[in-house]
């Protein structure tokens, strides 16, 4: 992430299809932002549809790392679509630095529709997270179609694409490079900037060595399987 890259926009919203990696990207982005700015950064769990693998399960750990974490105020296992407190205030407050992890697909992203109408276009970045190894975003057309569906329900216009090409822990350099290329083409067709390309730490250096011109964002993975804990 480029230092000061979002000095004008203090709200960064990550949205995208199910399983594109919004949660890991949001966490890493918020931590990086916090780390270079030394200011208070809010991380908002606005995923009201996924039952597991959410920010709320990591709340304490992320707070210990210095983030201000906002999650729905009910039991973490609740199925109720409860909007977390303070979300509107935070999103409309020009001074707060806020990262939003939005639920996946139109179903999960819809919640932002009611809030986005009140946000000024120049106050936020809405980054569309794409993993081309997921079923519905494997082609340029698929990516464009998913984006269109999501923009309709969120009433947000994407301001950039984030490439998160991976196949889980066994992702290779080749997987990342191939995916990056496809997502780059999608971005060009959509006339949107490709803001950065994610790769897990370790692999990120290899990507950078191979394609030094790329903006590579290294990810630490926070969501683990029960057998890796």
């Amino acid at each position: 992430m480029r230092k000061g890259g979002h000095s004008s926009a203090r709200k960064v919203i990550f949205f995208g299809p199910y399983g594109s990696g919004k949660t890991e990207v949001s966490i890493n982005y918020a931590l990086a932002w916090r780390s270079w700015s030394q200011r208070q950064v809010w991380l908002v769990d606005l995923d009201l549809v996924t039952p597991f693998f959410r920010i709320r399960e990591l709340r304490r750990r992320l707070e210990a790392l210095g983030l201000s974490v906002v999650v729905p105020e009910l039991d973490a296992a609740s199925e109720l679509p409860v909007i977390p407190p303070r979300v509107t205030t935070l999103l409309l407050d020009p001074a707060s630095a806020v990262v939003v992890d939005l639920g996946g697909d139109p179903t999960g992203a819809r919640v932002l529709g009611s809030l986005a109408a009140r946000m000024r276009g120049d106050t936020y970045q809405a980054y569309f997270v794409v993993n081309n190894y997921r079923p519905f975003t494997a082609t340029v057309e698929g990516i464009a179609d998913c984006l269109r569906r999501l923009e309709q329900v969120t009433r947000l216009a994407a301001t950039g694409l984030v490439a998160n090409p991976h196949l889980g822990p066994d992702t290779t350099l080749g997987d990342v490079l191939r995916g990056q290329e496809l997502i780059q083409r999608a971005a060009a067709q959509l006339r949107l900037p490709l803001v950065f390309t994610c790769a897990r730490k370790g692999l990120a250096d290899q990507v950078k060595a191979y394609r030094p011109e790329l903006e590579v964002f290294p990810l630490d993975l926070y969501i683990g399987m029960p057998w890796r804990r």
Binding site: G19, Y133, R134, P135
Partner: peptide
């Protein structure tokens, strides 16, 4: 080719 799927999606496919 390999794709990344959730279990529930994989059941459907």
């Amino acid at each position: 080719e390999r794709i990344l799927m959730k279990g529930n999606e994989a059941i459907g496919e």
